[in-house]
């Protein structure tokens, strides 16, 4: 008896259809997060851990609600996002042209490559005190820090992307009559897009990581600054709420980037429907 036939023969509860496999899968997938929340609620309810270490779930939810209603979350989130995105955008504006130039110009390639290979894997956050020294402790230094930390990732991705363009694509365009600038904008750039976007998808979370760290060190009105303040006042409810708020901001940023990739790469093997 084949497996399929066996399934069809199984008796269901009288009158009820057996829950399909999709329901079981959905339940499993939700169980992780639900499980965490349940454990958290139980821990708070029965005081299994000191409330300072793990504040009760209702208190954190109340804080979150408060932040949303008073607009505190919106203001802080906007502040953090603004600086992180500004730094990220600047890194793209500088990094993509530089990365492309590296792959096309020998001299530029020779000069910039070692700088990128030092900047890329190293904790550029260590430069934070220098930027505080040069630019103060307000928006400018945070944005510069974010740009500096992400630009190397973008350069490397743009370089790899343009280098990896299949030469037969370029040759086809040339033999169809395209001139140099046309070949660059109409063929090389679109062909390099997937890899460049992958680099951007790595750089954006990095921008947020650095921005949050910078806020914790320099203060200010962003989510990071507020969270560190909460810690200083031993306000663990505030810290937990802050983590959830930053996670939401992170999810928005990452999700937005993924959606952008989907739109720009509708033609790609990964996204095109077969």
């Amino acid at each position: 008896m084949s497996g399929q036939a066996a399934l069809e023969r199984l008796p269901g509860r009288s009158g009820w259809a057996r829950p399909g496999p999709w329901l079981r899968i959905a339940a499993l997938r939700a169980s992780g997060i639900v499980g965490v929340l349940v454990v958290w609620a139980i821990v708070g309810q029965f005081g299994l851990v000191r409330p300072f270490l793990v504040p009760p779930l209702p208190a954190v939810v109340a804080q979150l609600g408060d932040d949303v209603v008073t607009g505190g979350f919106a203001i802080s989130a906007a502040s953090t996002l603004y600086r992180a995105l500004a730094g990220f955008a600047l890194a793209c504006a500088i990094g993509i042209p530089v990365g492309i130039l590296i792959s096309r110009n020998r001299l530029v390639g020779w000069f910039v490559t070692p700088i990128v290979s030092v900047g890329f894997p190293t904790p550029t956050l260590a430069f934070l005190p220098i930027f505080m020294l040069w630019f103060g402790v307000f928006d400018l230094s945070k944005i510069v820090m974010t740009t500096f930390s992400t630009v190397f990732t973008v350069i490397a991705a743009a370089d790899a992307g343009t280098r990896g363009v299949e030469r037969h694509l370029v040759w086809s365009a040339e033999s169809l009559g395209a001139k140099r600038t046309a070949v660059f904008f109409e063929v090389m750039l679109p062909a390099a897009m997937p890899q460049i976007l992958t680099g951007l998808q790595v750089a954006l979370p990095l921008a947020l990581i650095v921005e949050v760290a910078a806020e914790m060190l320099m203060g200010g009105d962003g989510l990071g600054g507020r969270m560190l303040q909460a810690e200083n006042y031993a306000d663990s409810v505030g810290v937990y709420a802050g983590i959830i708020e930053i996670a939401v901001v992170g999810a928005i940023a990452v999700g937005g980037m993924a959606r952008l990739r989907q739109r720009l790469l509708r033609w790609h093997v990964e996204t095109a429907a077969r």
């Binding site: 037969h168 040759w171 086809s172 062909a191 790609h268």
Partner: peptide, 20 residues
């Protein structure tokens, strides 16, 4: 002296512009 439309090419791996 260089590529040109009077000599058209067809490659083994098609070389179609995948975004078009």
């Amino acid at each position: 002296a260089g590529p040109g439309p009077e000599r058209g090419v067809v490659f083994q791996n098609f070389a179609l512009f995948p975004w078009k």
